[in-house]
């Protein structure tokens, strides 16, 4: 099996960056075998690149000597590994039971209206991607969502409006 090329598309492994290699090497010191670091490597690569491309998959597979099919099995199993490009900020929108009782569907509609995106979609300016997520574990403050690494709680229509404007502000400051 050729682990360096996805034959059908002719795609080849990219070079992992120094920073990526350093972080993967650190993880390798914590686990008894390379296979266990597969998911960690996917997360590291995603942290640096926003998502995990075919070229990144090939690079990890080669670096950790994990069969590409096996790594793909792991990558596609987990909700938080993105195999397609996402916006700068991923909105993980809780649609589980407590948030549903507290009206998250209305908030979702609010996001549809104000950002123009629904589940699985990215805003045209590449700023936000909206993805539903199982219960975020903040049910006493429902409805909630996670934007990047920040929890937004007790959501109202206004919280969504402020989100869209702060997104634009972030753009201007070049963050």
């Amino acid at each position: 099996m050729n682990r360096e090329v996805i034959v059908s598309s002719g795609k080849i492994a990219r070079e992992l960056s120094e920073a990526e290699v350093k972080e993967i090497e650190h993880e390798l010191t914590l686990y008894p075998d390379k296979k266990a670091v597969g998911l960690e490597a996917l997360k590291i690569v995603q942290r640096h690149n926003g998502w995990v491309s075919d070229e990144s998959m090939l690079a990890i597979s080669k670096y950790l000597d994990i069969a590409l099919s096996e790594l793909e099995g792991v990558a596609t199993f987990f909700n938080l590994i993105y195999r397609r490009p996402v916006g700068k900020n991923v909105i993980l929108f809780c649609d589980s039971v407590s948030c549903w009782i507290m009206g998250c569907e209305k908030i979702r509609k609010e996001i549809n209206d104000h950002l123009g995106i629904d589940y699985g979609e990215t805003t045209e300016d590449g700023e936000y991607t909206l993805i539903p997520v199982p219960c975020l574990g903040d049910c006493d403050k429902a409805p909630v969502m996670l934007v990047g690494e920040k929890m937004h709680r007790n959501l109202t229509a206004d919280s969504i409006k402020s989100l869209s404007s702060s997104g634009k502000a972030q753009n201007k400051s070049g963050e």
Binding site: S98, P134, C135, G137, C139
Partner: peptide, 11 residues
Amino acid sequence: DEMEPGTFKDR
């Protein structure tokens, strides 16, 4: 891995 719907105690 607290993920049971409606559960927010371990956090």
